[in-house]
Nucleic acid binder design. Structure first.
Lengths: 222, 222
DNA sequence: GGATAGATGTCACTTAGTGTCAAATTGGCA
DNA sequence: TGCCAATTTGACACTAAGTGACATCTATCC
């Protein structure tokens, strides 16, 4: 039963199973409910039973979707960075990082559901500063991101993803994105306006370029 | 039980209390036992009771020293990087990172106990690649290191440690050190000789310099 | 030696998380 | 449409992680 972290390798299902899509949607729904409870009552004071009840599933099923309580927060925590990585995956070789990220930020949908979602993301990110269990989920999420980042960078630099330089770039770039995420979330939580966000896109791109010694961020040869 | 006749009796404490020193030594002893068990039987197959028995303490006491099973691995995992950070703390402003690290590596004691210890560190670091629970401990350890690193860098650059640039440098530098640690451990595990380690000191310094855009690594003004 | 304070052990207890199996649900196919 | 096969879910029992409370021990200070 697909423990939650691993990538989806097998897709060949004959009949009966649940679609990958639906699994993800389920995980997300659970995660949002868990995030709300974590935020309102704290992690320790939120039981697996409460989360399960909030979603309307049995406790046993909850533990089939998530290997433990903390990791219930991961899908929500991952959303922003995950989206960012998806954007990075289709980053054209001939475009700079700034331009590509700005293009993403401007084309992003902004419906109310999206917004209440972003709210949950920010809350979890801020919570990750204080609550050790959420911190763990936050770090584990970025650990996964780092691996994806290695593939993206490897592809961009025409090197294997196990190359030590590639792994270094991936680690430092991901770390930079994480710190800025934390910073932006804290600022938004404190009531900053959206104007500063536009700036942080450029900040992110710059930070990645600095963190990778200029190896990642600029257009590269096809 | 613990007939601890040796001399850490007169450290700073009012009455009855255990010295900080001794607490740390206890945590370390537990951690080494836990590391051995984790390595031999895996984390899941190692119970808190087994760890407690191996050390000769009650299970209740074990949970007084560590908040959960995974974190029993932290002191061992932290040792190398912790030592590295201690070295960084006394990094003279007028010396380059390479020179300072090399000085450390050459002056390090090499008694048999130290060596069997290093062995445990390597095993845990390698284990952290596969076992999610140890991975968590590894990442949490580096999260703590990152905060210490921020203070060191802040001091070196004459900036507050909450400064976003300082935090970025701390995060990327720590990430770089972590990746190289993983790489070196894997190499040693695969039977590499010590010659390559000497190289990796320079590699570390270079990586930190690159990761921080040159802000950290060179001598700076007093 | 006695008072004091923190460390440890014991025991009872809560709850996170798993194994197992029967019932329900899903999607493919005739 | 309705049956089939794989899979998901729920229910229940169970293991083990982790905590609270309290008595006991041990070291230090007077």
């Amino acid at each position: 039963m697909r423990s939650d972290g691993d990538s989806d390798t097998m897709n060949d299902r004959k009949s009966g199973g649940m679609s990958e899509r639906r699994q993800q949607r389920m995980r997300l729904e659970i995660s949002r409910a868990a995030a709300r409870l974590f935020w309102e009552h704290g992690v320790a004071a939120t039981s697996g039973e409460q989360i399960a009840n909030a979603v309307g599933i049995s406790v046993r099923t909850l533990w089939r979707y998530f290997r433990n309580k903390e990791s219930c927060a991961e899908p929500v925590l991952a959303r922003d960075v995950e989206e960012c990585v998806a954007v990075l995956r289709r980053w054209p070789r001939e475009v700079s990082l700034e331009d590509h990220l700005v293009e993403w930020a401007t084309n992003r949908p902004k419906n109310p559901d999206q917004q209440s979602y972003d709210d949950a993301v920010i809350k979890m990110t801020v919570l990750a500063e204080k609550e050790p269990d959420i911190r763990v989920a936050w770090l584990m999420t970025h650990d996964r991101i780092e691996r994806e980042m290695a593939e993206i960078i490897a592809d961009r630099l025409h090197r294997p993803s196990e190359d030590i330089e590639v792994r270094l770039h991936a680690a430092t770039a991901t770390a930079a994105l994480r710190v800025i995420s934390e910073d932006v979330s804290a600022a938004l939580m404190a009531g900053a306006d959206l104007a500063s966000i536009g700036n942080s896109i450029k900040h992110m791109a710059d930070a990645v370029r600095v963190a990778t010694g200029g190896a990642v961020g600029d257009p590269v040869d096809p």
